[in-house]
Design a protein around this nucleic acid. Sequence first.
DNA 1: TTGTATGCGTTATCAG
DNA 2: CTGATAACGCATACAA
Lengths: 352, 352
Amino acid sequence: MKFEAVTIKDIAKALGLSTSTVSRALRDSYEISPETKKLVLEYAEKINYHPNPIALSLKERRSRSIGIIVCEIANSYFSQVINGIESIAQNNGYNVIISQSHESAERELLNLQYLTSRSMDGLIISVSTETRDFSYFRELHDRGMPIVFFDRIVDEIETHKVIADNFKGAYDATTHLVKCGYKRIATLCNTTTLSIGKERLAGYIAALKDNGITPDESLIQYCQHGGLLAAEMDEAMNSLFRLRKVPDAIFASADKLTTGCLRALKSRGLSVPDDIGLIGFSNSELTELLEPSLSVIKQPAFEMGEVATSLLLELIEARHPVTNFQTKVLPTEMFIRQSTQTKKIRTKPVIS
Amino acid sequence: MKFEAVTIKDIAKALGLSTSTVSRALRDSYEISPETKKLVLEYAEKINYHPNPIALSLKERRSRSIGIIVCEIANSYFSQVINGIESIAQNNGYNVIISQSHESAERELLNLQYLTSRSMDGLIISVSTETRDFSYFRELHDRGMPIVFFDRIVDEIETHKVIADNFKGAYDATTHLVKCGYKRIATLCNTTTLSIGKERLAGYIAALKDNGITPDESLIQYCQHGGLLAAEMDEAMNSLFRLRKVPDAIFASADKLTTGCLRALKSRGLSVPDDIGLIGFSNSELTELLEPSLSVIKQPAFEMGEVATSLLLELIEARHPVTNFQTKVLPTEMFIRQSTQTKKIRTKPVIS
DNA sequence: TTGTATGCGTTATCAG
DNA sequence: CTGATAACGCATACAA
C-alpha cells in the first residue's frame, strides 16, 4: 500500500531491455533505434514513468532547488517577490526552499546553514536588518555558492544584486511632501547598516537640501527592527512628538515603518493629512483601502523576484566562473493620493 | 572553484578508516570504540562535515520535503498558514515546497504533478475554488500519498482535515449584523462546491432564520473566482444594487470578498457603516487600519498550519496504514469595531 | 544498436 | 570492534 514509483528498471525488465537502453531511449539518444525508442516511450507513458529527481540530483551533483531567505513571508512585499521568483524557477525546473529570518541575524544564520545542508544550488536573499556580520555569506560565496542579493544587499560581497531605486524613491517622496507645503519633515528609517537604509536616508536628505531645507538630526528616527516591534515604533514617535517643534509631516522609509507609523498616529488620534502629512514605502495591496490620502512609494516586487532569479540561474548554469557581476536597479512607483484622486508616477528606469 | 561538499569518504581517507566505520561513528553506533568515535567526530566537526541529504533521500526513499498548494502566497491568510507549516516542518527536519494554483484547477493539477515528480513525502493543500474534479487527489491518496486538507477541504476523500469553524463564524457575523439593526442583509460567497462555502452560507442562513428573517435568494451573490476578478465583483455588486430593495448590510464570506467588496463600495462612494453595514472574513494584518468600523472574522491561520503539519507528519511517519482520520475544527475570532473601540470575541473551540 | 560496469553519498548486511 | 560490499535510481564511458 505504499507509494511505489516506477523506475527505469521496471521498464527494462518488462521490455526485456537493459536499463541503459531504456535510459537512452527516454533521453532520445541518437544511438537508439526508432522502434526501441517508440516501444520504450509508449510503455513509459503507459505506466506513468517519471524520473526520480533525487537520483538525478545525486548523479548530477545539483539539487535543482534554490534557497530563499527573507525576513517575513507574510510581508506583502516579500510574498510578491517570492511570486516572481517562483514563476521563473518553476519554468526552469527549479523549486524553491523558502525560509524566514524574522529580522534576526541568528535565525538567518541557522537558515543559511539549513539551506546549505539541504544542498541548494544557489541562494537569493534579502538580509535581515539586524545582520552585521557578513562573513558567512563571504565564506559561502568564496566556496562557489551562487548568490544573488536583492532589496537589502550586502555591498562588501561581489555578486549579482538587484535593488529598487531607493534614493530616487525617497527623494521623490520627500520632494512631494515639500511641494505640499510641509516644513518640518521627519523620517523613520531602518538602521543604515544596509545600503538600502543609507540610500533612502540620502534621498531624503538630498531632497531637503535641494529645496533649501536644512536636515535636522532630531527629525531622523532609526528603528533597528524595521518597525516590527510596536514598542520601538512608539519610542520613535514619542521622540518626535517630544520635540519643541514637532514635525508637520513624516516620510516612512520602509513598509513596516509606514503601517507602524500609521497605527501609531491613529492611536494618538491624529489623522492624515489633516493633522500631519505622511508618505511612505508600502507594497500592500490594501494600501488603496487605507487612508484615501495616504500616498505611497511602491517597490518593484514581482519583477524584482524575476530578475533576481534569472541572474541566479545564470550563475548556477554558468560553465565558467562569473566575474562580471552586475547590479540591476529597478524603478520605484509613487502613488500620490489626494482625497479620492490617485496619480501614478513611475520613476524612470535606471539600469547599471 | 566549485562548491564541493566534504563527504564520509574524505573523512575515511584522511583518518585511514573505512567509510562504514566513519558512518557508524557519526551515527554514534554502539559497535564503535570511544576513541574512534571521538577521532571521527572531532575531525568531522573540524572540516565542517554535513551529511548529504540527497544521498540520504535516495537511500531512505523519502525526500524529507512536503508539498504545499495554496491559491496565493501573497494572500495574507495563506502566508500566515505557511508560517505555521514552516515552523513545524523545520523543527522536524522537513522542508516545504510551495506552489500556487492562482485559483485555477488547471494550474493546481500541474503543481500536483510537479510536486509528485519532485517526490514529496506528503501534501498539504487548500484546493482552488475552481476545482471540480477530485480524481487526481483520490488517485494520489489511494496510491498511499499522505495528504492533509485544510481550509478548503474535499469531503469525498478520507484523510486528515483541518478547518475553521466556518459555520459558527458566519453565524456569528450575520447575527452581529442583525443585532446592529440591519434588515436586508446580503452575502457575497464563493461557490458552494467546497464545504467551506457551504458552511458559511449555511451559517448565514441559519442566523437569519434564527432571528426571524427569511433568507432571500436575490441577496445571495456567488463569486466563482473568490473575488480575484474585479469584474466579477462588480457584477455581483451591481446585481445587489439593481434590486428593488437594495440591501442595507453585507456579509462577505471570504478574505478576497471582503476587500473586494470594500473596494467596490468605496468606488461607489458608499462608506461603512454610514451608508451600508459590512462584516467579513479577513485575515489581513492591515484590517485594523482600514475602516475603523469594519468588523471582521479572522480564521485561525498560523495554528491551522501547525496543526495540519503535525497531522501530516504523523501520516508520513506512521509505520502502518492510518485509518482513523480526523477532522479538526479550529475556532474563529470575531473583531467587532465600533468607531474607535474594538471588541475581540473568540468563539469557543470545537474539536471532533 | 544495445548491454555491462561504474559512480554519485550513504547505510545495512555480512564477514572478519 | 572494523572493513568490504551491495543497494537506492539514474546516466554514461566503455565493450560488444
